Amino acid sequence: MSRTPQFFRRTALPVYACLALTALTSLTGCSDASPSKAPAAARSADSSATTGSPAPDPATASAPSSPSGSGAGSAKSASPPVHVSIPSLGIDSAVMRLGLNADGTVEVPPADKGMTVGWYTGGPVPGRPGPAVLIGHNDTRFGRAVFHDLKKIAKGADIAVRDKRGTEIHFEVTGRETASKKAFPTARVYGRTEARALRLITCDGAFDAAGHPVDNLIVYAEKK
């Protein structure tokens, strides 16, 4: 892999956090990326985070090397996700595809699609080995967004992902954490595992001087 995607910047919204909002708005949405980087392994379908204790890392983890085995190619051959629901939170959303921006940062849903979840196509399809990543806004300048209530999700909650073929795959929440964008837990989110894992990511926390949330909320789940 030639470039590693970065987590949110002001100009190119990041991976695994929410999108940038107008700084002067009173809404909570996501914003600038931290200097943390997502490893190249995140683009391989069998690389994923270990879903153990979700306690925050004291510092940004180093990026794991891209593993061998089933990779992005096998993810492409699988049926992509088209819908996600979290009944306990009342979340019911179509899923759009997200790739990389020209500068290597991960795309996020546009602000006018704040109620739509995005799937990062550089990782595995949900239900395959590795960390499938779904990204959603907390708020945008248009108002409350799809992952606004994600912080309320409980351990054991059900997440249902339907693929293009109509197959519904269920995941169980194993934990969640709030992590500083300056110390993103790369190893936990991207570390190698055979688990069929799912990560949901949005913004969280207090605001910096520019009005941007300083943290990311990460939800960890595994296929039932």
Rank of each mutant, 00 (worst) to 15 (best):
K151G: 15
A132S: 15
A94T: 15
D215M: 08
P80L: 05
L89V: 03
L198A: 02
D215Y: 01
R128H: 09
E222F: 04
I159P: 00
A55K: 10
S70F: 10
L200T: 01
D92V: 07
R3V: 15
S53I: 02
G143C: 08
A179F: 03
S53H: 13
I91L: 08
G29M: 10
D139Y: 09
L150R: 04
T202A: 04
R141V: 12
I201N: 02
G71K: 06
E107H: 12
G71V: 07
V189E: 07
G136P: 01
P110D: 06
V84C: 02
R176P: 02
T121L: 12
K181D: 13
A94G: 13
V125D: 00
P39D: 03
T202M: 12
A49G: 10
D103Q: 14
S74K: 15
M1L: 10
S44T: 12
V146H: 01
A160D: 04
I201S: 02
C18D: 14
E168G: 02
H212W: 06
E177W: 04
A72S: 15
G69Q: 08
S79R: 15
K152Q: 15
D204S: 09
P56M: 13
D139R: 04
P80A: 15
V125E: 01
R188Q: 15
G205L: 10
K151N: 13
T174G: 07
R9C: 03
A42N: 08
A160W: 02
V125C: 02
G127S: 12
S66E: 08
G143R: 10
L89H: 00
G211K: 05
F142H: 08
A187R: 06
S36G: 13
